[in-house]
Amino acid sequence: MLLQIDELAVGYQGRAILPRMTLRVAPGQLWAVIGPNGAGKSTFLRTILGLQHPVAGTISRGPGAIGYVPQRSEIDSAVPQRVIDLVRMGVERGWRVLDPLAARRNPAVEAAMRDTDVTALARTQWQRLSEGQKQRALLAQALAGEPTLLVLDEPTSAMDVHAEAGIFAVLERLRAERRLGVVVISHHLALLARYATHFLLLDKDEQLALVGERETVLRHPAFLERYGQVLDRGGRHD
């Protein structure tokens, strides 16, 4: 098991904003976290990443590293950074970063860039990349740490449909080839319905936390009430 969450309550200053959740993320599963804006999705993500404390419950991580893919807007375009520099940062783990003799050439960096098709962009500055290329570079950074679990925060926002489909195709390949567990926040229901194995539907205002396998959630009245029509149109929700 890569991630075991028991009776988890997430929130701020000791106050839970969502009902308690229990779920298990296993290798090869792709968990889609969906819900309206302000539903508590990012709070959930930050909690399982260890960036904020849970209000209650427990989170147990399995063996292996977590790869985190933040939103592209969190990278400062004013700081010069080539794709290779960004990806190399993904290799660092714990106190090993203090080892000045750690090799700069790391096969995991090259493999990650190859897997995400950014090898040709290695010397390109971050600010010159298209949105799709930026997302692939961030994915390469996360993969360079050879994670067993990949966590992505809205990887396809502000992307055209073609680029969105490309990112999900890469995720699907990684899930299948590397047996990665994936947890992803996204608004693109059509792609999620195609690629996700499990869903977590959150809604802070309605105090809803619906957890389950794809078929179960897609047929659940709470899901159909919110997204049934959106899914029929094959589009994204807000």
Binding site: M89, E92, R93, G145
Partner: peptide, 10 residues
């Protein structure tokens, strides 16, 4: 990348 550093346990 402060959040990334924390996730990578630096």
């Amino acid at each position: 990348d402060r959040d990334g550093a924390r996730v990578q346990r630096l």
